[in-house]
Design a protein around this nucleic acid. Structure first.
Length: 191
DNA sequence: AGCACGATTAACT
DNA sequence: GTTAATCGTGCTC
């Protein structure tokens, strides 16, 4: 959960064959432990959740709603399941590369602002072409074409908003309402 | 082997 | 505000 707060301002990078794309992480959520009934690890160690029991700094990528990929970063030591969901990034490099892959719904025109390309966990994965290939991979440095770096960006506490995690419809309290979502207004990233 | 559900999104009324 | 799209996962029988 500490990790989720600290991931704000980190940079997600993606090496495409045509070049590098990157975005600043501005929204995260924490999922922590088998006791957290909002966390997939509530089911214990299963084929799906085993990555969360592995070493920190590896990607936990899973498929949901029959069509969407989401990416987490394993956030605690081996045998202690915890992960940080990356919910949104602010594109800064390689916008043309992200534009190629981004979701392109019917109503959206060709000039849809880049801020909207990666403002949800599934949209971000689509634009960055993140899927099951990255599940379990080390993303602390560029081993696989996907990694996270510290660019030295720091935020004051009054810029960081917390709120309950999104989409936990049938999760019981207190997990449904615990404020383990961290977010910065993307306008604050560049002023 | 079958089933209910989901860390979402976009289009619709 | 409501709903469809769509399938892997974990649970039950």
């Amino acid at each position: 959960m500490h990790t989720a707060r600290n991931m704000l301002g980190k940079v997600l990078l993606r090496q495409f064959s045509q070049g590098i794309a990157a975005g600043i992480i501005y929204e995260t959520e924490a999922y922590q432990g088998e006791d957290d009934l909002g966390c997939h690890a509530k089911a214990g160690r299963t084929p799906r959740t085993s990555v969360m029991y592995g070493p920190p700094g590896h990607a936990y990528v899973y498929f949901t709603y029959g069509m969407h990929w989401m990416m987490n970063v394993v956030a605690d030591h081996v045998d202690t399941p915890a992960a940080v969901l990356i919910r949104a990034v602010h594109p800064i490099i390689g916008l043309d590369l992200l534009d190629v892959h981004r979701p392109r719904p019917n109503r959206w025109n060709a000039n849809h602002p880049s801020l909207r390309w990666t403002d949800g966990p599934a949209k971000m994965c689509q634009a960055f072409q993140i899927d099951a290939r990255y599940n379990g991979k080390n993303i602390c440095s560029n081993h696989t074409g996907l990694w996270i770096a510290d660019a030295g960006l720091r935020f004051e506490e009054d810029q960081v908003m917390t709120s309950p995690r999104v989409g936990l419809f049938s999760v019981p309290e207190p997990w449904k309402s615990i404020p383990w979502r961290w977010r910065i207004d993307p306008k604050n990233i560049f002023g």
